[in-house]
Protein backbone atom coordinates (compact mmCIF):
# COMPACT_ATOMS: atom_id res chain seq x y z
CA UNK A 1 0.00 0.00 0.00
CA UNK A 2 1.31 3.44 -0.92
CA UNK A 3 1.81 5.77 2.00
CA UNK A 4 -0.73 8.30 0.63
CA UNK A 5 -3.38 5.61 0.56
CA UNK A 6 -2.41 4.58 4.03
CA UNK A 7 -2.88 8.11 5.31
CA UNK A 8 -6.53 7.95 4.20
CA UNK A 9 -7.08 4.44 5.48
CA UNK A 10 -5.49 5.16 8.82
CA UNK A 11 -8.55 7.23 9.76
CA UNK A 12 -10.76 4.17 9.30
CA UNK A 13 -8.34 2.10 11.34
CA UNK A 14 -8.28 4.84 13.91
CA UNK A 15 -12.05 5.15 14.44
CA UNK A 16 -13.69 2.26 12.60
CA UNK A 17 -14.52 -1.29 13.57
CA UNK A 18 -11.16 -3.10 13.46
CA UNK A 19 -9.65 -6.24 14.87
CA UNK A 20 -7.39 -5.97 17.87
CA UNK A 21 -4.43 -6.72 15.60
CA UNK A 22 -5.33 -3.85 13.22
CA UNK A 23 -5.88 -1.45 16.09
CA UNK A 24 -2.48 -2.23 17.59
CA UNK A 25 -0.85 -1.87 14.18
CA UNK A 26 -2.53 1.55 13.61
CA UNK A 27 -1.49 2.79 17.05
CA UNK A 28 2.06 1.67 16.51
CA UNK A 29 2.23 3.29 13.07
CA UNK A 30 0.75 6.56 14.32
CA UNK A 31 3.26 6.76 17.15
CA UNK A 32 6.20 6.33 14.79
CA UNK A 33 5.00 8.16 11.63
CA UNK A 34 4.80 11.93 11.95
CA UNK A 35 3.19 12.23 8.52
CA UNK A 36 0.19 10.01 9.39
CA UNK A 37 -0.28 11.33 12.91
CA UNK A 38 -0.24 14.88 11.48
CA UNK A 39 -2.86 13.87 8.87
CA UNK A 40 -5.12 12.39 11.56
CA UNK A 41 -4.75 15.44 13.80
CA UNK A 42 -5.35 17.79 10.89
CA UNK A 43 -8.47 15.87 9.88
CA UNK A 44 -9.82 15.82 13.43
CA UNK A 45 -9.24 19.56 13.63
CA UNK A 46 -11.09 20.56 10.48
CA UNK A 47 -13.85 17.98 11.02
CA UNK A 48 -14.40 19.53 14.45
CA UNK A 49 -14.71 22.95 12.83
CA UNK A 50 -16.87 21.94 9.88
CA UNK A 51 -19.22 19.75 11.89
CA UNK A 52 -19.57 21.86 15.02
CA UNK A 53 -23.02 21.44 16.56
CA UNK A 54 -25.25 24.29 17.70
CA UNK A 55 -25.64 25.03 21.39
CA UNK A 56 -29.23 24.41 22.38
CA UNK A 57 -30.70 25.35 25.74
CA UNK A 58 -33.59 23.77 27.63
CA UNK A 59 -35.68 26.79 26.68
CA UNK A 60 -34.93 26.10 22.99
CA UNK A 61 -36.06 22.54 23.57
CA UNK A 62 -39.36 23.65 25.13
CA UNK A 63 -40.07 26.18 22.41
CA UNK A 64 -39.26 23.62 19.73
CA UNK A 65 -41.44 20.93 21.34
CA UNK A 66 -44.37 23.32 21.67
CA UNK A 67 -44.08 24.28 18.01
CA UNK A 68 -44.09 20.61 16.92
CA UNK A 69 -47.06 19.76 19.16
CA UNK A 70 -48.96 22.80 17.88
CA UNK A 71 -48.34 21.72 14.28
CA UNK A 72 -49.55 18.20 15.05
CA UNK A 73 -52.65 19.57 16.76
CA UNK A 74 -53.49 21.92 13.90
CA UNK A 75 -52.93 19.12 11.36
CA UNK A 76 -55.36 16.92 13.33
CA UNK A 77 -57.92 19.76 13.50
CA UNK A 78 -57.56 20.34 9.76
CA UNK A 79 -58.05 16.64 9.08
CA UNK A 80 -61.23 16.44 11.17
CA UNK A 81 -62.40 19.70 9.60
CA UNK A 82 -62.00 18.23 6.14
CA UNK A 83 -64.03 15.15 7.15
CA UNK A 84 -66.75 17.52 8.38
CA UNK A 85 -66.50 19.52 5.15
CA UNK A 86 -66.96 16.39 3.05
CA UNK A 87 -69.94 15.39 5.20
CA UNK A 88 -71.58 18.81 4.94
CA UNK A 89 -70.76 19.39 1.27
CA UNK A 90 -71.47 15.99 -0.18
CA UNK A 91 -72.95 13.43 2.15
CA UNK A 92 -75.86 15.45 3.60
CA UNK A 93 -77.04 16.86 0.20
CA UNK A 94 -76.70 13.39 -1.31
CA UNK A 95 -78.76 11.84 1.47
CA UNK A 96 -81.40 14.62 1.14
CA UNK A 97 -81.77 14.32 -2.61
CA UNK A 98 -81.99 10.53 -2.36
CA UNK A 99 -84.81 10.87 0.16
CA UNK A 100 -86.67 13.37 -2.07
CA UNK A 101 -86.25 11.14 -5.13
CA UNK A 102 -87.51 8.12 -3.20
CA UNK A 103 -90.52 10.08 -1.93
CA UNK A 104 -91.41 11.28 -5.46
CA UNK A 105 -90.95 7.81 -6.95
CA UNK A 106 -92.90 5.85 -4.36
CA UNK A 107 -95.52 8.34 -3.11
CA UNK A 108 -96.27 10.99 -5.73
CA UNK A 109 -96.05 9.23 -9.08
CA UNK A 110 -98.28 6.23 -8.28
CA UNK A 111 -101.08 8.55 -7.11
CA UNK A 112 -100.96 10.92 -10.06
CA UNK A 113 -103.82 10.03 -12.48
CA UNK A 114 -102.67 9.60 -16.08
CA UNK A 115 -99.00 9.70 -15.17
CA UNK A 116 -99.19 6.44 -13.32
CA UNK A 117 -100.80 4.65 -16.31
CA UNK A 118 -98.43 6.17 -18.76
CA UNK A 119 -95.30 5.11 -16.95
CA UNK A 120 -96.85 1.96 -15.64
CA UNK A 121 -96.96 0.05 -18.84
CA UNK A 122 -95.69 -2.61 -16.59
CA UNK A 123 -98.37 -1.80 -14.02
CA UNK A 124 -95.57 -1.60 -11.57
CA UNK A 125 -97.54 0.50 -9.14
CA UNK A 126 -100.85 -1.29 -9.62
CA UNK A 127 -102.28 -3.24 -6.75
CA UNK A 128 -104.57 -5.12 -9.08
CA UNK A 129 -103.08 -8.53 -9.76
CA UNK A 130 -105.02 -8.98 -12.98
CA UNK A 131 -103.85 -5.67 -14.31
CA UNK A 132 -100.27 -6.67 -13.54
CA UNK A 133 -100.64 -10.03 -15.27
CA UNK A 134 -102.16 -8.34 -18.24
CA UNK A 135 -99.34 -5.89 -18.40
CA UNK A 136 -96.62 -8.50 -18.19
CA UNK A 137 -98.13 -11.07 -20.64
CA UNK A 138 -97.32 -10.66 -24.35
CA UNK A 139 -100.03 -9.18 -26.60
CA UNK A 140 -102.19 -11.92 -28.21
CA UNK A 141 -101.32 -12.50 -31.88
CA UNK A 142 -104.25 -12.03 -34.23
CA UNK A 143 -102.79 -14.44 -36.83
CA UNK A 144 -100.52 -17.44 -36.33
CA UNK A 145 -97.03 -17.37 -37.84
CA UNK A 146 -97.95 -20.03 -40.42
CA UNK A 147 -100.90 -17.92 -41.65
CA UNK A 148 -98.59 -14.92 -42.12
CA UNK A 149 -96.03 -16.91 -44.17
CA UNK A 150 -98.77 -18.38 -46.37
CA UNK A 151 -100.19 -14.93 -47.06
CA UNK A 152 -96.66 -13.64 -48.11
CA UNK A 153 -96.22 -16.53 -50.56
CA UNK A 154 -99.64 -15.88 -52.06
CA UNK A 155 -98.75 -12.26 -52.63
Amino acid sequence: MKHDELKVKILGLYDGPVTEKERLWAEKHLSSCADCSHAVEEYKNFAGILFALPTLSEADEDIFTNKVMARIKSAATEASQSVLDITVRWFIPLLGSTAVAAWVFFSILPNTPGLSNAINGSAFFSSDANEMNAAWSPAPASKSNEEIVVSWIKE
Binding site: L53, P54, L56, E61, D62, F64, T65, V68, M69, I72
Partner: peptide, 29 residues
Protein backbone atom coordinates in the same frame (compact mmCIF):
# COMPACT_ATOMS: atom_id res chain seq x y z
CA UNK B 1 -50.83 12.23 22.33
CA UNK B 2 -49.07 14.41 24.89
CA UNK B 3 -46.48 11.66 25.39
CA UNK B 4 -45.16 12.54 21.94
CA UNK B 5 -43.86 15.78 23.43
CA UNK B 6 -41.51 13.70 25.58
CA UNK B 7 -40.28 11.80 22.57
CA UNK B 8 -39.60 15.12 20.83
CA UNK B 9 -37.70 16.43 23.87
CA UNK B 10 -35.72 13.20 24.08
CA UNK B 11 -34.47 13.46 20.49
CA UNK B 12 -34.64 17.18 19.79
CA UNK B 13 -30.91 17.86 20.21
CA UNK B 14 -29.81 15.03 17.98
CA UNK B 15 -32.31 15.67 15.19
CA UNK B 16 -31.65 19.39 15.33
CA UNK B 17 -27.87 18.77 15.38
CA UNK B 18 -28.10 16.55 12.33
CA UNK B 19 -30.28 19.02 10.41
CA UNK B 20 -27.95 21.85 11.35
CA UNK B 21 -24.86 19.97 10.15
CA UNK B 22 -26.54 19.10 6.89
CA UNK B 23 -28.16 22.48 6.21
CA UNK B 24 -25.78 24.85 8.07
CA UNK B 25 -28.49 27.35 8.77
CA UNK B 26 -30.46 27.61 12.00
CA UNK B 27 -33.77 28.58 10.42
CA UNK B 28 -33.64 25.85 7.75
CA UNK B 29 -32.47 23.31 10.32
Amino acid sequence: TEAYGDLVRQYHKRVMGYCFSMLSNHTDA
